[in-house]
Nucleic acid binder design. Sequence first.
DNA 1: AATGAATGAGGTTTCATTCAT
DNA 2: AATGAATGAAACCTCATTCAT
Lengths: 185, 185, 185, 185
Amino acid sequence: MTEQARRAQIIAAAIEVVAELGYQATSFKRIAQRAGLSSTGLISYHFKGKQELVDEVFAEVLRRFTTFVLDRLDRADTAAGELRAFLSANLRFMAAHRAEAVAFLRLRPHVSEREVAEGDHRKMADLLRAGQAAGEFRDFDPDIMSIFLLALRTGVLTRAADDAAVDIELCERELLIAVELATRR
Amino acid sequence: MTEQARRAQIIAAAIEVVAELGYQATSFKRIAQRAGLSSTGLISYHFKGKQELVDEVFAEVLRRFTTFVLDRLDRADTAAGELRAFLSANLRFMAAHRAEAVAFLRLRPHVSEREVAEGDHRKMADLLRAGQAAGEFRDFDPDIMSIFLLALRTGVLTRAADDAAVDIELCERELLIAVELATRR
Amino acid sequence: MTEQARRAQIIAAAIEVVAELGYQATSFKRIAQRAGLSSTGLISYHFKGKQELVDEVFAEVLRRFTTFVLDRLDRADTAAGELRAFLSANLRFMAAHRAEAVAFLRLRPHVSEREVAEGDHRKMADLLRAGQAAGEFRDFDPDIMSIFLLALRTGVLTRAADDAAVDIELCERELLIAVELATRR
Amino acid sequence: MTEQARRAQIIAAAIEVVAELGYQATSFKRIAQRAGLSSTGLISYHFKGKQELVDEVFAEVLRRFTTFVLDRLDRADTAAGELRAFLSANLRFMAAHRAEAVAFLRLRPHVSEREVAEGDHRKMADLLRAGQAAGEFRDFDPDIMSIFLLALRTGVLTRAADDAAVDIELCERELLIAVELATRR
DNA sequence: AATGAATGAGGTTTCATTCAT
DNA sequence: AATGAATGAAACCTCATTCAT
């Protein structure tokens, strides 16, 4: 088996275990069992340590998340449209890729480089500034509003992660309305 | 020393440790050191197990949090006013009682009865419904809006917990405006 | 069992294991077996880590070694006499306390503070200087001669540790003569 | 690549690693990294096990050491002269080939056949006996004096290995004087 | 009520060695 | 001859919990 394939297999198993049992209960032993590996030594063979594994798992999830969102962003031609598309895509990711979304939320506090886990803030603030410059948004503080919008994103995802009964489509509709009201000129 | 006093002492130490080092690094050993206890056995003696300790610590923090917030809710005579007071009080709790607030955020995912950690939702939804009945709020889904508002509360607190440089008063002002816009009739 | 007694027991077991199997093969598991402990965790309970254990074991051996030697030093009234007594006592320690002596040699390279393991050099050089000042010794470089004398001490002990057939009393007589010739005025 | 060349390459890397990091930290992994090998399996392929590798590395270092010393022994025409040349050459080996000298000292305790590591003793005793027969040396026990002289050799080298600031030439001069005094008729 | 030593399971990690290719 | 992934034992260490005193 090739290095890349094995790493991918381990990462996939880790995502599942984290999503099901949470970060705390995610041990090398459980990942190895889930992946059908013969020993935990194999994980150490492919990853320098637990932190590297966590970082790579998170990076992989983030990559899929980002790709998913970006794919749904290109059609937007206004800042407000882009913001709507961003929020919609975020919620839909939970519906379409539950395990990854849950793993994303659970791993975030344990990623070694905080920057990676919070990479969205700057981009979001820039988008808001652009929308203000274009006259689409009212005159709020873009850095603070960025905190609000990402808090909404994360909070709704967390709620959906905790309670599978949450109606994500309904959340999406209501969220778009509320954000529109809170940001428009 | 009385049973109650001992438990309070242990809980106080646990709050500090959780706030400083996070849930993961919070072991009986560290709590005992912080509290100046002679043995971790003393913790096991007063609490049935780690989960009970965690639950009680969270309950205690939640009690203080709730008291703090309720104290600032009395004066409100409208639903919108109460909502504003609730949000303000929440943010101010972080400024006034940082350790408790951080412990609250860090313990929440590990509390055994989910109900406890999310007790706010029903009350918030009821408040929103009352406001809608009184014609103060527009016609959103109160359960969903409740998710949003608590997501904002938690997200802003989390951000402030991670980054002490966040200007909580500015957040408060902007948050009240945004929520007003998103909820008013 | 009291803390002190347990530590002493573990240290005693460690001395035996190191003397018999060498540093490399000295694991917590083997020490625990030798001491009749239920688990290696007990060692970690009494010593912060392996390095602390090693350091304490060495310190204990060194203490016994030093006491043994000092007890045989006080009768000397000249520097040359003290030097002879020192060398004699060193060799006799091997004969009288073989396990400690072997452990001393085997642990020395792994002690964390080099200073401790090489504490003799300064004192030896001082003794040599005193002897030169008193006209007992010829005009060698005392720091270098100190290296030679301790090299002789260590080398002979090492030889005796490796080969139990070495006649230590004969070594002692010959060593005193050789050192006398090499150092006298 | 030829078998012999590969073994030599591995041995060379092992010498460096042992000299730099000590025996304990010398793993197949580090040797492979140092040698630029693709896998630790290659080491196992060329050496039956770790012990064989250690033995061969030591044998190789010993060979170079011996050659170096023997090259400087030819000119001596008396036993005393040969002894002086031997000691000088030993100290100079450290100055000229530090890595090999340090590896020699660090590997010696781990060589499987003790005989190899202590091969010098018999030859040294023979030299001493010859010197006594020729009337150059006084009437000491040659086997014991052999222990002393090799202890001096090893001790000084060890000291120089631990502390690069030791002045080897000064040691050499002082050593020759001391040994002359201790052995001459 | 309190102590503090003891327990044993479980964690991550390193290691020499093996094996299919 | 070489590769590099795989193996499984063994290492040290931390943990919550138990228990005799």
